[in-house]
């Protein structure tokens, strides 16, 4: 059985444990043994150590990477920030051996050493490359029945491409998440603002209204161009914006339509037979209609 280290981060275990539930279910169904990364911390988030110092950032990331290294596993994360922060830290340490050296001096104080042997995956690239679309298709229990998906890969899952071990052929025209959705029975057309930022993250905490306005602009284009049944994200932060952020817009009467949203781990888990109740437990925008469609209703 293939092993994979599941890196939780913060938002998934604390704010959206339904993603954690789904991811665990999905990985098991796909035949992976989940290795717990005991003692793993925050990636760290971009507004914390990365905004203080490059070595401090790399040291905190390396802490997490060494936990997986010691267990001899690669890492998978459902959060774009975690994917970006861990990979960028790796990149800086590879590119600048002196940073790696400084980091290892710090790690030595707790008897650890960063080697650089662990690869960091996100769900999109993992499903696309390690699992493979054929395997995915073969393991479906609930076909998506042609529900129309608006995909949101997420900025951190695309850029900076120099730091990433694998990526889209054209990061400005991402297709992997679309192909994944289609392999499990959905329809996932391209739309013109597919790579636009959702507005979640530092912008949301610094200028909430502007962040939501930016998000609404994107939503309007999605609605107008493809009018989907559901939005599917590759990043947990994007999901927070697409779900809770959308609910806020509705509450503020700034939006007169609803697009339910799920993380790809959730949608794929449902396709693999996960309990939809649990898999979507924290969703603010109700998914009843989508679930009914998947189950063959109208």
């Amino acid at each position: 059985m293939k092993k994979i280290g599941f890196f939780l981060g913060c938002n998934i275990p604390f704010n959206r444990p339904d993603i954690e539930y789904s991811a665990r279910y999905l990985l098991n169904e796909l035949g992976y043994e989940i290795v717990e990364l005991e003692g793993a911390s925050c990636c760290p988030a971009f507004g914390t150590m990365p905004s203080l110092d490059l070595v401090g950032w790399a040291a905190a990331s390396a802490w997490n990477l060494t936990i997986a290294e010691e267990k001899g596993v690669d890492i998978i994360t459902g959060c774009g920030s975690c994917y970006g922060s861990l990979n960028e830290a790796r990149y800086h340490m590879e590119k600048h051996p002196e940073i790696k050296e400084q980091v290892n001096k710090i790690l030595a104080k707790v008897d650890k050493e960063y080697k650089g042997t662990t690869k960091v995956w996100n769900f999109i690239n993992f499903l696309y490359e390690d699992v493979g679309l054929d395997t995915l298709k073969a393991k479906i229990k609930n076909n998506l029945n042609g529900i129309k998906c608006a995909v949101q890969t997420g900025c951190h899952n695309l850029w900076p491409s120099r730091a990433y071990p694998t990526n889209e052929d054209n990061t400005f025209f991402p297709t992997r998440l679309r192909e994944i959705c289609e392999s499990i029975g959905g329809v996932a057309p391209h739309y013109s603002t597919i790579t636009d930022c959702c507005g979640m993250g530092a912008l949301r905490s610094t200028a909430s209204e502007k962040s939501l306005a930016l998000f609404k602009k994107k939503l309007d284009v999605i609605k107008q161009e493809i009018d989907p049944d559901i939005a599917v994200t590759g990043c947990s932060s994007c999901l927070l914006q697409f779900d809770a952020g959308q609910a806020l817009l509705i509450e503020q009467k700034k939006l007169d339509y609803k697009i339910p949203a799920l993380h790809i781990a959730q949608l794929a888990a449902i396709a693999m037979g996960a309990d939809p109740e649990k898999a979507t437990a924290m969703a603010s925008i109700p998914l009843n209609g989508v679930i009914t469609k998947i189950k063959g209703g109208n």
Binding site: F14, N15, Y21, S41, A45, A281, M282
Partner: peptide
Amino acid sequence: HAVYPKGYEERRKKVGLPDKPPTV
């Protein structure tokens, strides 16, 4: 954890996960 919201234990329970994640 930089993001450490209150009341997460309840949310985790709801989906059948242990109160605390196996992290730090």
